[in-house]
């Protein structure tokens, strides 16, 4: 399934009376990789979690494929959106293959189709289904686990992918190759990807467009080139140059 558009319109969210997002609007085009870049606590993860309703907005609307997420049953919505996070969250009691085919299992696919899909997805992220599929997650390296996390997020052919620092726990070299592979993979699949990171170089490597998030708002949205060449304000410039 090709990607769908995701839009945020005047979204406000607070936790315990602290405003985390203040009237945020953002458009993500179908098939685009949009990276939410910002320091920890800036609200970027909350923005991401609004899309699959792990968080509900106080005001404003979030739309996936033109339909407001508040109108969806959260469970149904989430099964149509891939989700990968920093801790990966693989189930230690299931094999790697069974982890990958978990959403298809929730969707009621039969065992045969699930097995095929798991093998296909593992190959897609550069793992050998025969070698790795039967192992337990704790028998894989950190980088391999992250790959499995990506494979799992893609398994049910979602209309969009939400990724929250999915390569955060890998060593720098492994991280680099994961990023490169993910970039070509996301181009090839044409999924809409919303990707959260605090790592500036990761953002520049992966993004079609970057949205710089700070203090509960979006400071600038643009291609990596636009952001590098004409940062909107001192904060954006500081963030980019701090990493250089």
């Amino acid at each position: 399934m090709k990607g769908v558009a995701i839009s945020f319109r005047e979204v406000t969210k607070s936790f315990d009376q602290k405003i985390v997002l203040d009237r945020v609007s953002l458009e993500v085009s179908p098939g685009e990789v949009l990276v939410l870049l910002g320091r920890s606590g800036c609200g970027k993860t909350t923005l991401l979690r609004l899309v699959n309703r792990l968080v509900d907005a106080d005001a404003g609307g979030v739309y996936v494929g033109g339909r407001e997420v508040a109108d969806w049953d959260p469970v149904e919505l989430r099964r149509g959106i891939g989700y990968a996070i920093q801790g990966v969250g693989l189930l230690p009691n299931l094999s790697v293959g069974d982890n990958v085919s978990l959403v298809p299992r929730l969707l009621g696919w039969n065992a045969e189709r699930r097995r095929e899909r798991a093998a296909e997805m593992l190959r897609l992220v550069g793992l050998d289904p025969r070698e790795h599929g039967g192992r337990r997650p704790d028998q894989l390296s950190g980088g391999q686990r992250q790959r499995v996390g990506v494979a799992r997020a893609l398994a049910a052919d979602p209309q969009a992918l939400l990724m929250d620092e999915p390569f955060g726990a890998v060593d720098p070299i492994g991280r680099r190759s994961l990023q490169e592979e993910f970039r070509s993979l996301s181009r090839e699949l044409g999924k809409t990807v919303l990707f959260v990171t605090h790592d500036v170089s990761e953002a520049f490597r992966l993004a079609d467009r970057i949205a710089v998030v700070a203090d509960g708002g979006i400071r600038q949205v643009g291609t990596p080139g636009e952001i590098r060449d004409s940062p909107a304000d001192a904060l954006v410039r500081g963030l980019i140059e701090g990493a250089a």
Partner: peptide
């Protein structure tokens, strides 16, 4: 149970019952 696993389970679209039987009880 590791919060990351619960977050992933919710994010994948498990119902509360599925999370209990597939994730929390086994772990």
């Amino acid at each position: 149970v590791d919060p990351a696993i619960l977050d992933a389970a919710n994010g994948m679209g498990m119902t509360d019952w599925q999370r209990l039987t597939l994730v929390e009880v086994p772990l």
